[in-house]
Simulated scan of single mutants.
Amino acid sequence: MDQERMTDSAAAAARHARYGRLPERVRAEDMTEEVAGAPGGTAASYDPEGSWKFFSCLALDLGL
């Protein structure tokens, strides 16, 4: 029984040495990145001639 306690306490000490403290805190400044946007505030400009390509209609999808 004494041998079991010795093994358990050694295992507990090893576990505490490995997992006994929390990792370092990450600052909010390190988690965010500022990137310059596209001129005009949007990534793509509006193209009225090509807008029909993205039109979705159930009647057209069904072939009616």
Rank of each mutant, 00 (worst) to 15 (best):
V26S: 09
V26I: 15
L60F: 15
E33C: 04
E4Y: 12
Y46C: 00
A14W: 05
G40S: 11
G20M: 05
S51V: 10
G37P: 00
A28E: 08
D30Y: 03
R21K: 15
L58Y: 05
S45I: 13
R25Q: 11
Q3V: 10
C57S: 15
R15D: 07
E4Q: 14
V26Y: 10
T7A: 12
M1K: 14
R5E: 09
D30A: 04
R21S: 15
D30F: 00
R27F: 02
L60M: 14
T7L: 04
W52V: 09
A13N: 05
M1P: 06
G50N: 08
D61P: 00
W52D: 14
A11K: 00
L58I: 08
G50R: 05
S9T: 10
A28K: 02
D47W: 03
V26G: 00
H16T: 13
S9Q: 13
Y46K: 01
L58A: 09
G40I: 06
L22Y: 11
Y19A: 02
S51C: 07
E4L: 15
R15L: 06
L62G: 07
F54V: 06
A44K: 00
P23K: 08
R25T: 08
C57I: 05
L64R: 13
R27M: 04
C57M: 11
A13S: 06
A43V: 05
A14T: 06
E24I: 14
Q3S: 13
P23L: 10
A12K: 02
A14R: 09
A36D: 15
G20H: 01
E33R: 00
A43P: 01
W52R: 10
Y19K: 02
H16V: 11
R15M: 02
S51G: 05
A36Y: 13
E34P: 00
E33D: 06
M31C: 04
L22T: 13
L22V: 09
V35G: 01
C57P: 00
Q3T: 12
D47R: 09
S9I: 14
S56P: 02
Y46T: 03
G41M: 01
R5L: 12
M6H: 09
P48K: 01
G50L: 02
D61S: 11
D30K: 07
T7V: 11
D8F: 05
D47Q: 10
A36P: 09
D61N: 12
A59H: 10
A13E: 11
A10C: 07
M1T: 12
T32N: 00
M6N: 12
A10G: 07
G37V: 03
F54K: 11
S9P: 02
M6F: 12
S51Q: 13
D30N: 10
M6A: 15
V35C: 06
M6L: 15
E24D: 15
A17Y: 10
A13M: 02
A12Q: 02
R27K: 04
E24A: 15
L22N: 10
W52M: 01
R5H: 02
E33H: 04
S45V: 09
A28Q: 04
Q3H: 02
S9Y: 04
A38P: 11
L64K: 08
T32G: 03
F55H: 04
A12I: 01
R15C: 06
P23I: 08
